[in-house]
Design a protein around this nucleic acid. Structure first.
Length: 430
RNA sequence: GUGGCCAUAGCUUAGUGGUAAAGCUCCGCUCUGUGGAAGCGGCUACGAGGGUUCGAUUCCCUUUGGCCACCCCA
């Protein structure tokens, strides 16, 4: 048996569902970061960064029944006393925690915050679905449940995605009411499905008891006919919720923002109430929603704080990148070098780093292939980088204290004095 | 957590029970102080562990990772 040398290779890989962002992919991240800054600024969102870990209670209190909390959280073992640290599975609860902790709750006017960071969920990875992924979130905290903020959150979320040139966005929106009218609706729903138990799929039979709203989301063919006959939540909303939702839609209408009412749309987290929405792209439906969000007026109290009215949306960065790729949208452009420094021989090499530094300090975008000895190879690299000029510095030039300036397009060369190099180069690249 | 498909060089892929081929990339040579073309040459791989076998990259088991469906979600 051979194969001794490969021992340990299995360790040389990133954890399941977690990926390196290699240099090739960075331009996408650059572009998204820039777009996020731009949109946040113009819509008045201030950046907030919270730790990657939180006390588990932060999340446990906000969604006992949900998969995310029940089985997808990473609990962290430490040597210290913290027994219950988790890697954050989402960004809304931490933002609310920070908000309450720092006494921001004396709201003069609504506070708008945004975050951009990694989230962690233990689940089976698939395309567009990772164990570590990144979200951009917009959150609006207010002292009133004004529906204009729901529209505002949808607006900012959609505009950020559009800023990245992703087309054919579909906004799906629904209202899941408040505690009271939702309970009433669930009761109706249960009644409706109660006598059809043996005709619906196994999953739905199970869900009927635990999370009846999810029945509306079922894709099983057996369940479809019952779904279409099922009571619709919008018809059962209390007046407060009905008016609120109506107002949200009116704001969207005024914006001429297209949306689809989706009676089946339900969010996975327990803290949502009233408005919920998801954003899809026609091009990348298969990787799921690009963004989602909604109102969460109950979260602050669930966490032990005072009542805060809040609404927001979050965007899946990796899914955005996938979609950009499927549209052949490129990432941010790197600034190109204008000048390439080539050395020949050791004497020249010794001085070339200093020459490089002098030009860089003078504001010239210069690049090089230090470490490659052959002139050919260096010029080849210069060609690949599509620079305007190459500076060729060899033995002869060392003695003459000069350097050759080569125009890469015409091939014309000229020898200039080393001391004048910065000004001469600048003159030529204009 | 359940089920299915997959795994060969840096990348994309061929192929075989007798240790493997090609394209792109990379490095070099033709051209010893001059790039963009062409030709030639070179580096680098059967994910890991175990089993069957004279011999396994190939067959079997386990494991790891990727993808897909369920579940759920960004």
């Amino acid at each position: 048996m051979k194969a001794k040398k490969k021992k340990g290779k299995f360790l040389l890989q990133s954890p399941k569902g977690m990926h390196d962002v290699l240099p090739d992919e960075q331009p996408y991240w650059e572009k998204i970061k820039k777009a996020t800054e731009k949109i946040s600024e113009s819509y008045g969102f201030s950046r907030i960064d919270t730790p990657a870990m939180e006390n588990a209670e932060i999340f446990e209190r906000t969604g006992e029944e949900t998969d995310l909390i029940e089985k997808q959280m990473y609990y962290v073992k430490t040597k210290g006393k913290e027994r219950n640290l988790v890697l954050r599975p989402e960004g809304t609860a931490p933002t609310m925690r920070s908000f309450l902790q720092h006494g921001f709750s004396r709201l003069g006017k609504p506070l708008k915050l945004y975050y951009f960071g990694p989230m962690f969920r233990y689940e089976q990875p698939q395309a567009g679905r990772f164990r570590q992924f990144h979200q951009i979130g917009f959150e609006i905290f207010a002292s009133e449940d004004d529906p204009i903020f729901d529209a505002y959150a949808v607006l900012a979320t959609v505009r950020l995605i559009e800023e990245l040139k992703i087309k054919n966005l579909i906004v799906q929106i629904n209202s899941i009411g408040c505690k009271q009218c939702r309970q009433a609706y669930i009761k109706k729903l249960k009644e409706y499905y109660g006598n059809k138990k043996d005709k619906i799929c196994k999953n739905c039979q199970r869900r009927l008891a635990a999370r009846p709203l999810r029945l509306l989301d079922c894709k099983d063919e057996k369940c479809q006919p019952f779904k279409s006959e099922a009571p619709v939540i919008l018809d059962k909303l209390c007046n407060g919720c009905k008016n609120h939702f109506k107002a949200v839609l009116e704001y969207l209408d005024e914006l001429a923002m297209p949306y689809i009412l989706n009676h089946y749309l339900v969010r996975g987290l327990d803290y949502y109430n009233r408005t919920v929405f998801e954003v899809f792209s026609e091009q990348s439906k298969d990787i799921g929603a690009l963004a989602s969000g909604g109102r969460y007026d109950n979260l602050s109290e669930m966490m032990g704080g005072k009542k805060i009215f809040a609404t927001g949306g979050s965007i899946g960065v990796e899914r955005i990148i996938e979609t950009m790729k499927s549209f052949s949208i490129t990432g941010a452009l790197k600034p190109k070098s204008e000048v390439f420094l080539v050395y020949i021989g050791n004497e020249a090499k010794k001085k070339s780093l200093a020459i490089f530094e002098k030009l860089r300090a003078a504001g010239v975008r210069i690049s090089e292939s230090f470490g490659k000895e052959s002139l050919k190879a260096q010029l080849k690299d210069a060609d690949k980088e599509q620079v305007k000029l190459s500076l060729i510095f060899g033995q002869r030039e060392v003695f003459e204290e000069s350097i050759i300036v080569r125009d890469m397009k015409t091939g014309a060369q000229e020898t200039i004095l080393l001391e004048k190099i910065a000004e001469e180069v600048k003159k030529r690249i204009k």
